[in-house]
Nucleic acid binder design. Sequence first.
DNA 1: CATGGGATTGACT
DNA 2: GTCAATCCCATGC
Length: 208
Amino acid sequence: MKPLPPEFYGRPVLEVAPDLIGCTVVHGETAGTIVETEAYHQEEPACHAYVGLTARTRTLFGAPGRAYVYRSYGIHAMLNAVCEPEGVGAAVLIRALAPEAGIELMRARRGVSDERELCSGPGRLTQALAIGLELNDTPLDHGEVVVLPREGPVPAVVSSVRVGITKAAELPWRFSAVSNPNVSRPWPWRTARGRRRAPEGAVASRSG
DNA sequence: CATGGGATTGACT
DNA sequence: GTCAATCCCATGC
């Protein structure tokens, strides 16, 4: 299976974020299917690129299809896929995976045994797959970390508000695979904020 | 150069 | 429900 090419990412971030649900992240012997993402764009203040081009945001403004990895709360690494054409600061945060390969290795790295706790959060999945800051700005189609296209049917996806942000908190730019136990809390599919999205076609709602 | 605020998690009340 | 850990980096003096 060939990795997704840069052209896949060089589109509007609100199209790429739901399209990544069901795709597979591979690093070494470990791999998992994406079940939760969030979109970030330079025009809204929750995005790091909102402040413009700096040393930190250089990757975000660079070519699409590369990894943007940064440290959050001084502890966790966050894995993003850079999107939109070069010069536009936008990315999709990979928030949760369904473990597929190297599960015992993930258990050892995470120190927990429950499969649902291995990759159900952005900090958890980078620990389970051993994705660190050294992978920032590496290509996702021929680098150490690769993303493979969906193999099965298009999954049902629900959009909801993003997690853990204070600015532009009302935008429904979080996308989750419906009823998948590997999605991080809070689960959106029972809440009033969650909105089901057609399995195919339509772009996510901007208005909530 | 000092400061403050996180795209989080896990432990605890 | 609350809270601390821990560090990068944007910002302001």
